[in-house]
Design a protein around this nucleic acid. Structure first.
Length: 802
RNA sequence: GCCGAUGUGGCGGAAUGGCAGACGCGCUUGACUCAAAAUCAAGUACGAAAGUGUGCGGGUUCAAGUCCCGCCAUCGGCACCA
C-alpha cells in the first residue's frame, strides 16, 4: 500500500462534495430537520485562527453524523462583516472597507473550504450585503414603529481613540472592547433600543431552552433582576419627595442617612436652599473627571459631601436624617438615591464610619461595632417588624405597611440597561431615520430600503465625534418622507451587534427579497436545534439576538418565541506557552500551516482530541503528530483487510462498544473520548492483525464525521458503493457489547490482592469460591471470620475479614 | 466582595461510588539504517520492598478522584447594582 497522500485526497473530495452539493439543506424535505448553528466569523485581515476550527468542528461532527442518520441538516456559515477593525484597516491602508471585507471573506472562505467543513455554501450570508442589511434596517424600523427605539441625551461610554459611543457591553471594565483604551463619560445624543422592556421575557424564556448551566447563569446575572421596594422619603426644607429603591425595605428603621448620586437632579433644583453648594459643585466636578472604571474599580475609600441645608425625614419613624452626595451611588440604577443602613450594608457602614454617622442595629446576630451584619436574624428596633425572624416575611410585611401608609410600594429593578444603538462610524448599517424640523424623527419608508451606505472616499471619523456620513451632503440632505420638506438624514450607523442579531433567520431563506425569510422556511427550520459558540458571546450577542427574535415573535414575524433550543460553548485553544493566543505574544497557530503539513483531517481530529471540548487547552505540536499517526494507521488497515461483511467473533464486542461510545460521545460533545475509543479499537485490530470488510466499513463510518476525506477515499477504494457522505451511520447492538470473559479484581478489606479471569455472567457463589481459593487471598483470610462479601458483576470481589 | 467552574503522572487528559492514570504526547530500550528521520516492538505514577498516591484537613462507606463538612489555590463572570 502506498503512503496516504493527504493533500491530493483532500482536494479530490472537497471538489467532489462541491460538485455534488453533498451538504445542501433542502427547504422542502420530508426528512426530519436538524439546524446546527455556529457563530459566523468576523472576517478579519489576520485570517482564521485554530480557535475558529475548534469552534466549528464540534457541530461539524454532529452535522455529519445527523446526515448519516437520515436528517435534513442545515449547517450554514456566513460573515459578520461590519465593524471597526475593517474600518481601521481601511483608514490605515487607504483601501476601501468594501474591498477589505471582500478580500477577507475570500480568504476566510478558502480557509474554511480547505478544512472540509460540510457547510451549505449556497446559503452564505454577508451582513454588509445590501440584500442583507435591508432587513436589518427593516427590523429596526419595526422596532421604531412599536416604540422600542428612542433617543435620549445622556452620559455615555465614549472611546476617545475609536471616537465612538460604546454600549455597556462593549466597555466592560472601563476599557474599549475594540482598542482597549480607557473609556470616558461624555454627554451625547444616543439612539436606544428598549431592551429593558424585554428583561422579564428574556429571563422567563430561559426556562424553555436547554443552555449550558453556565450560559444561563451569565444571562441571568447580566439581566440582573432584583426585587425590592420604592420608598418615598420627604425632604423637610422643600417638602418634596426623595424616592429611593431598596432590596431591604425590612431595614427601614435602621436608616441613619441618605445618599444621592452626584448627578441627582435634586441638587440643581435646590441650589438656593443648599448652603454649601460650592463644595458640592467641586465634588461633582471631581467625580465627572473619573472614568467609570476609576469610580467603580479603584476607589476603595468612600468619599462624599453632606448637603448642608437639606434634611430627610424617614417616613416610618419621622426621624430627621442627613443627606449626602457620594459617587458610590449611581444615577443609572434605581432612582439615583439610596437609604443608607450602615448596620446592615457594607458600603453604608464604611461611609458611616468615615463620616461619623450613627449605626443602628435592626437585625440581631452580628457585631455592628466591628462590621456590617448582612445575615438573617431577629428584627429589633423596628416597630411593626419587631420579633420577626424570617427575612422574606419581614420584607413582605414592610411592603404591605408602606403601601397602607402610601409611602412606598413593591418594585423591580434590572442591572441591564437599554441598548445604546448608534456608532459614529462609516462601516455599519445606516440608521434609516430622517430628522425633519417639522415632523421630528421620521422613519425611512419601508419601500425605500435598503438605505444604502454611500460610497465615499473619506471614512475617517470626525474629530467632534461625528460620523463620516455627516460630511456627505448628498446623503444628509433629503426630503421628509412625511411632509416633503427639507430634512436631514441620521448619519450614525448601527453597532456591529445589529447584523448578528438575526442572521440565523436569514439562513432559512437567504435569497428572499420580500421578507427576512419566508414563513414557510422558518416554520420548517426554527428553532435552531443546537447553537455552539464562545462564552464571550453569551451576554451580548446572545441577549441581543434573543431580544430581537422575541420582538419579531411578538409582532408575528417568526414562529418561535426563542431562537435557540440548545446552546453549548467550546473552550479556547491556548498557545503552546499556555497563554491565550495573540498576535503580540506570537503564539498564534495558523490553520493553513497545519493543513499544509498534516492535512485537514489531522487538524480536525486534533482540535477535538486535545481535551474536553468545553475546556481551554494549550496547543501542542507533538500531539498533532499523534493524530497524524492515527490517520496513517487507519489507512494502513487496507493491507490487512479480509473478506466478510460481518464482524469476526473476537472483535464483535469491541466493535459494538466502540460504535455505541462514539455515537453517544458525539451527542454529549465528548469528542476526545470518542476519538480515544476509536484509537483503542485500532490498537486491538492491529494486535489481531486483520480486519474484515464489514469491520472496516463501520470503523471508517464512525470516523467519517471527524476525518471525512480519508474515510471517503478508503470507502471508495474498498468499493463499498456510492459516497460515504450518502451512506448510513453504523448501528450497534447493546446485547453484543459485553465481552464473554472478564478480569475482575479481588479485594481483601478493600485492598486489591489478586485478579481473576472469569466468565462475565458468573454467579456470586462461584466467584467467591474461586477468589478464596486464590493463593494470595487464602493466606489473608485464613483463621479470620468473614464479616461481609461483596461481588460487583464484571468488576470486583471484596472480602471483609476480621 | 458576590456567583460559578476547576485542581489527577513529565505534559494534554480518562474514570455510572467498584482495579486511578483509558487514549495521546513525551521519554527509555530494542529492531530497521552508514547515520538520522519515519516506522515497528517492549517499557514508562512514586517506591528496593512492604507500601504510598487524584490541592489540603476531617467525615460517611465493605469500597471515595467521585458523596458530605471545613479550608487553600487557579481560572472565568459580575461588581459601590442599593
Amino acid at each position: 500500500m502506498e503512503r496516504y497522500n493527504f493533500s491530493e485526497t483532500e482536494k479530490k473530495w472537497q471538489a467532489y462534495w462541491n460538485e455534488h452539493d453533498s451538504f445542501k439543506a433542502e427547504n422542502n424535505s420530508k426528512k426530519p430537520k436538524f439546524y446546527a448553528l455556529v457563530e459566523f466569523p468576523y472576517p478579519s485581515g489576520h485570517g482564521m485562527h485554530v480557535g475558529h476550527i475548534k469552534a466549528y468542528s464540534g457541530l461539524e461532527v454532529v452535522s455529519r453524523k445527523r446526515r448519516l442518520e437520515g436528517y435534513n441538516v442545515l449547517f450554514p456559515i456566513g460573515f459578520d462583516a461590519y465593524g471597526l477593525p475593517t474600518e481601521n484597516t481601511a483608514i490605515k491602508t487607504g483601501v476601501h472597507p468594501r474591498q477589505v471585507t471582500d478580500e477577507n471573506i475570500k480568504k476566510f472562505t478558502s480557509q474554511l473550504k480547505r478544512v472540509g467543513f460540510s457547510f451549505d455554501w449556497s446559503r452564505v450570508i454577508d451582513t454588509t450585503d445590501e440584500d442583507y442589511y435591508k432587513w436589518t434596517q427593516w427590523i429596526f424600523l419595526k422596532m421604531f414603529e412599536h416604540g422600542l427605539v428612542f433617543r435620549d441625551k445622556t452620559l455615555v461610554n465614549y472611546c476617545p481613540s475609536c471616537k465612538v459611543v460604546l454600549s455597556n457591553e462593549d466597555s466592560q471594565g472601563g476599557k474599549c472592547d475594540i482598542c482597549h483604551s480607557d473609556v470616558v463619560q461624555k454627554t451625547k445624543e444616543v439612539w436606544y433600543l428598549r431592551i429593558t422592556e424585554y428583561a422579564d421575557k428574556l429571563l422567563e424564556g430561559l426556562d424553555s431552552v436547554n443552555y449550558l448551566p453556565n450560559v444561563r447563569l451569565q444571562q441571568e446575572n447580566w439581566i440582573g433582576r432584583s426585587e425590592g421596594a420604592f420608598v418615598n422619603f420627604t425632604v423637610k426644607e422643600t417638602n418634596e419627595k426623595l424616592r429611593i429603591y431598596t432590596t431591604r425595605p425590612d431595614t427601614l428603621y435602621g436608616v441613619t442617612f441618605m445618599v444621592i448620586a452626584p448627578e441627582h437632579p435634586m441638587i440643581e433644583a435646590h441650589r438656593a436652599e443648599i448652603a454649601n453648594i460650592a463644595e458640592l459643585d467641586a465634588y461633582k466636578e471631581e467625580c465627572a473627571k473619573k472614568s467609570e472604571f476609576e469610580r467603580t474599580q479603584l476607589v476603595k475609600d468612600k468619599t462624599g459631601v453632606r448637603i448642608d441645608g437639606l434634611t430627610a425625614i424617614n417616613p416610618v419613624n419621622g426621624k430627621e436624617i442627613p443627606i449626602y452626595i457620594s459617587d458610590y451611588v449611581m444615577m443609572g440604577y434605581g432612582t439615583g438615591a439610596i437609604m443608607a443602613v450602615p448596620a446592615h450594608d457594607g458600603r453604608d457602614y464604611d461611609f458611616a464610619k468615615k463620616f461619623g454617622i450613627d449605626i443602628i442595629e435592626v437585625i440581631k446576630g452580628g457585631d455592628i461595632s466591628k462590621e456590617a451584619y448582612t445575615g438573617d436574624g431577629e428584627m429589633v428596633n423596628s416597630g411593626v417588624l419587631d420579633g420577626m425572624t424570617n427575612k422574606k416575611d419581614s420584607i413582605a410585611k414592610m411592603i404591605e405597611f408602606l403601601k397602607e401608609k402610601g409611602i412606598g410600594e413593591k418594585g423591580v429593578q434590572y442591572k441591564m440597561k437599554d441598548w445604546a444603538f448608534n456608532r459614529q462610524r462609516y462601516w455599519g448599517e445606516p440608521i434609516p431615520i430622517v430628522h425633519c424640523p417639522v415632523c421630528g424623527d421620521v422613519p425611512v419608508p419601508y419601500d425605500e430600503l435598503p438605505l444604502k451606505l454611500p460610497p465615499v472616499q473619506d471614512y475617517k471619523p470626525g474629530e467632534d465625534g461625528e460620523s463620516p456620513l455627516a460630511r456627505i451632503a448628498d446623503f444628509v440632505n433629503c426630503k421628509c418622507p412625511k411632509c416633503g420638506g427639507d430634512a436631514k438624514r441620521e448619519t450614525d450607523t448601527m453597532p456591529q451587534w445589529a447584523g448578528s442579531s438575526w442572521y440565523f433567520l436569514r439562513y432559512c431563506d437567504p435569497a428572499n427579497n420580500t421578507a427576512i425569510a419566508s414563513q414557510e422556511s422558518m416554520k420548517y427550520w426554527l428553532p435552531v436545534d443546537w447553537y455552539n459558540g464562545g462564552m464571550e458571546h453569551v451576554t451580548r450577542h446572545m441577549i441581543y439576538s434573543r431580544f430581537w427574535h422575541r420582538f419579531l415573535y411578538d409582532i408575528g414575524e417568526v414562529p418561535t418565541p426563542e431562537p435557540y433550543a440548545k446552546r453549548t460553548a467550546q473552550g479556547l485553544i491556548l498557545g503552546s506557552d499556555g497563554y491565550k493566543m495573540s498576535k503580540s505574544r506570537g503564539n498564534v497557530v495558523d490553520p493553513n500551516d497545519v493543513v499544509d503539513e498534516y492535512g485537514a483531517d489531522v487538524l480536525r481530529l486534533y482540535v477535538l482530541f486535545m481535551g474536553d471540548y468545553e475546556q481551554a487547552a494549550p496547543w501542542n505540536e507533538s500531539s498533532v503528530k499523534g493524530c497524524k499517526r492515527f490517520i496513517d494507521r487507519i489507512w494502513a488497515l487496507q493491507d490487512i483487510v479480509t473478506d466478510g461483511d460481518s464482524y469476526s467473533e473476537d472483535l464483535t464486542p469491541i466493535m459494538h462498544r466502540t460504535i455505541k461510545k462514539v455515537s453517544e460521545d458525539i451527542e454529549n460533545m465528548r469528542f476526545n473520548t470518542a476519538i480515544a475509543a476509536m484509537m483503542t479499537l485500532l490498537n486491538k485490530i492491529e494486535e489481531k492483525g486483520s480486519i474484515t470488510r464489514g469491520e472496516y466499513r463501520d470503523l471508517i463510518t464512525i470516523l467519517n464525521p471527524f476525518a471525512p476525506h480519508i474515510t471517503e477515499e478508503i470507502w471508495q477504494r474498498m468499493g463499498f458503493g456510492g459516497a460515504l457522505s450518502d451512506s448510513k451511520w453504523a448501528v450497534y447492538d447493546e446485547a453484543l457489547c459485553a465481552d464473554k470473559t472478564v478480569e475482575i479484581a479481588v479485594q481483601v478489606n478493600g485492598k486489591i490482592k489478586a485478579k481473576l479471569n472469569i466468565p462475565a455472567d458468573a454467579e456470586q457463589d462461584e466467584v467467591l469460591k474461586l477468589a478464596k481459593a486464590d493463593s494470595a487471598v487464602a493466606g489473608l483470610i485464613e483463621g479470620k471470620s468473614i464479616v461481609k462479601e461483596i461481588y460487583v458483576k464484571g468488576r470486583l470481589v471484596n472480602i471483609v475479614a476480621k
